[in-house]
């Protein structure tokens, strides 16, 4: 049984790139919303415990929508470090999940 569960959870995290990788500070690609939803459905269908991480252009405007689509982990670079209060921005992003509940 342990072997089976290890196989099912072969991937722990799927990172959906929401910008072309290589640089910080790029604009979010909006097809990520539907990709996140489709990946979430696939994970549920496969009974996998994999988490969905979104990387690229995550900001205060798209964060809660991403969580609603099924995101479990949000990467934030410029949004955090270009803000006047990085720790406050992190706290606001963290709240994104509860706003969708």
């Amino acid at each position: 049984m342990n072997v089976l569960s290890e196989v099912i959870s072969a991937i722990d995290v799927v990172v959906l790139m929401s910008v072309n990788p290589g640089f910080g500070g790029q604009s979010f690609i909006r097809n990520t919303f539907s990709k996140t939803e489709e990946l979430k459905n696939l994970i549920i269908q496969k009974n996998s415990g994999a988490k969905i991480e979104i990387d690229g252009g995550v900001d205060l405007k798209n964060a809660s929508e991403l969580v609603r689509c099924g995101a479990d982990i949000l990467v934030a670079g410029n949004t955090v470090f270009s803000s006047t209060s990085p720790s406050n921005t992190i706290a606001i992003l963290k709240e994104a999940s509860t706003q969708t509940a």
Binding site: V15, K35, L42, G56
Partner: peptide
């Protein structure tokens, strides 16, 4: 973790679940 480029299909991980 497996990262997927923005214009690669997320479906490619299907077989790895």
């Amino acid at each position: 973790g497996v990262a997927i480029n923005p214009y690669s299909c997320e479906c490619i991980v299907r077989s790895y679940f």
